[in-house]
């Protein structure tokens, strides 16, 4: 695909904590550890997927990368730019290089603005290209995302959900960004429409060499879209691997459980005896248990898991896992015995 060293986004030790209101004035201030020491890199022209359940911090990570939420600590580089240090006008200009596609195409488009103006607005704000050419570029973007240029005059409510998401995609591409963050871009759409948007995102990636940070809870979608995948649980990455390794040899018990929880249309998969069923809900990210955050739901947890936090360690090139119980040669607990 691209050069091995061509890293577009480099995030290191990112932390995002939110302060909670005190219960009373003498109480200790508590914090939500929404994202806790997360590091990842995305190569230019590839897609990194972040999967996890609600509350795992995947959307907060995306928002932090977009600088839409204040970060507590950590470093982020977009190409040569130190993204974490940018402020004011510099930050505003850096935003031309990164854009976001939101989850809900109903609430992310202004209902009072015509579709063409929605797509044109980023170009006007960022002063991109000659103002006289912008009209042509909007029409061009409409064609690229599978809308007709004459639909520019319509208002968002005159489009279906899938078409609105196409407008969202066109708006994200208007500034010719390098990085596009896709925050659950299809989960609000009807099943039959999801395929249209996913195929569109992939063909646009090929055409413009886009780099995607793709947030989703749907493992099937992630498997289809992403080159590398980070699995998050309660604000931390528990497993990080390329697409083939993650799905053929999941190492972390949580990844395993996620994969086995997905309802399958294939009878052979359903009959597998090694499926894990998790009990209960994830614990609250406010009062985190010591040790491994997954230990309270992990069927294999040992005494060590409750005491020590497992580091994210590399098992094979390109496959890292944060679990005490995965042996150094890569045998996960669910494969033993």
């Amino acid at each position: 695909m691209s050069d091995d060293d061509d890293i577009l986004l480099d995030v290191a030790h990112l932390k995002v904590y939110f302060r909670l209101p005190r219960k009373n004035i003498f109480a200790k201030a508590s914090r939500v550890h929404a994202v806790d020491d997360v590091s990842f890199q995305i190569k230019r022209g590839t897609t990194l997927g972040i999967v996890g359940e609600s509350g795992s911090g995947k959307t907060t990570t995306a928002m932090a990368v977009m600088r839409l939420t204040p970060i507590t600590s950590g470093a982020m580089r977009l190409g040569d730019t130190d993204l974490a240090a940018l402020e004011g006008e510099d930050l505003r200009h850096a935003r031309t290089r990164m854009q976001i596609i939101f989850q809900d195409p109903y609430s992310s488009l202004n209902p009072r603005v015509r579709a063409g103006a929605i797509v044109r607005e980023p170009m006007d704000l960022m002063n991109i290209g000659d103002p006289a050419d912008r009209e042509g570029r909007v029409a061009d973007l409409f064609r690229k995302v599978g809308l007709r240029p004459e639909q520019q005059a319509l208002f968002p409510h005159q489009f279906s959900g899938g078409q609105r998401q196409r407008i969202g995609v066109a708006r994200a591409l208007a500034t010719q960004p390098e990085l596009v963050v896709c925050d659950e871009p299809v989960s609000a759409l009807d099943v039959a429409i999801q395929a249209q948007i996913l195929n569109l995102l992939r063909s646009l990636q090929d055409e413009f060499g886009l780099t995607y940070l793709f947030i989703s809870h749907d493992l099937g979608v992630v498997q289809y879209m992403c080159d590398e995948i980070a699995v998050m649980y309660l604000g931390q990455i528990v497993e990080y691997a390329d697409r083939i390794s993650l799905f053929t040899e999941p190492l972390h018990p949580y990844t395993w459980a996620l994969l086995s929880a997905v309802p399958s249309a294939d009878p052979a998969t359903r009959a597998r005896a090694d499926r894990i069923r998790l009990q209960g809900d994830p614990p609250s990210p406010i009062d985190l248990p010591p040790g491994c955050r997954f230990s309270s739901r992990c069927p294999f947890a040992e005494a060590r898991c409750v005491q020590e936090t497992p580091p994210l360690r590399s098992i094979r090139p390109g496959h890292a896992v944060a679990c005490h119980l995965v042996s150094d040669d890569g045998v996960p607990p669910q494969r033993r015995s």
Binding site: V191, T248, S264, A265
Partner: peptide, 12 residues
């Protein structure tokens, strides 16, 4: 309906 959904597979 069946084919437009990316089904999760164990051997991608």
């Amino acid at each position: 309906l069946i084919r437009c959904v990316p089904h999760l597979t164990r051997n991608p």
